[in-house]
Amino acid sequence: MHSKRLCLLALFLGGCIAGYLLLGARGNWAFVLPFRGNKLIALLLVAIAVSTATVLFQTITQNRILTPAIMGFDALYVLIVTILVYLLGGQVFLQLPAVGQFVFNTTLMLVAALALFGSLLTRARGDLMRMILTGIIFAVLFRAITDFLQRMIDPNEYAVIQISSYARFARIEVELLAIASVLTCAALIATWRMRHRLDVLALGPDAAINLGENPQRGMFQALIIIAVLVSVSTALVGPMAFMGLLVVSLAHMITPTASHAVLLPSAALISAITLVGGQFVLERVLGLSTPLIVVVDVVGGGVFLILLMRGKRR
């Protein structure tokens, strides 16, 4: 049943991609296709990174309403970039090669995420509401500090941050796209190899220990993968508060299973359809100027509220 639905999703995604690449293109195909192609690759990378990070996060926390973005991972990444520009100065920062910048940011992100969320996830496990609220306030705090630092920085250097944390859809650097692809692929391979262990970890720490899995080790590895994936997606397009929640909730509805071998591809496909198809509809069909993320956030936020109120807090 699930494989059939996965095939249908894949077909649908294929349609979206074709429509996105081909429809409404006027003039020089040699120019349009590579341009749109790059943008498409970025969309796909972001989509898969967000959905995979969200699935991993929900597995290690055993609930359906937490996502890295809600817990402030995206905001943390932007904050780290801002702190770097603040400390090093925009010019120094810009002179670093794009790959170096990216790897450096991601490494810092990893350390910070493990330090902050590793302890939060272990300690506050018993009290889910407190944990989510802490995460949301973390996100608010990270954004406030980011905003504060950005205003402390020279206006010229401020521009640097805007380049490095937002609006990559407009002009995507091929170099960054390459390193992002490599990192995402590595993270995806690691996740896929973990898929059976993830099934066990999702049963909860006690059941995992009973079956001979070390939940701490699993959580640590999952957090590393999450940090890499969040870095990729945030660096490419900026923070997306409710995107992950939306697509993974949809995946649970369309392919209701606990098996990660199905859930991971299903969420990735739905995520890609949401981004590519949504971008296609918004840009080409409706001709709206609003970024897709704003729409996704409204819908995803609504889903979050409904999940909270329905009592599906686990």
């Binding site: 509401m129 989510i132 609220l133 949301i136 979050f304 509220l305 909270l308």
Partner: peptide, 12 residues
């Protein structure tokens, strides 16, 4: 669930 209230408020 008292902490649900601020949570819902922030999302709302």
């Amino acid at each position: 669930q008292p902490l649900l209230v601020p949570l819902v408020g922030l999302i709302y």
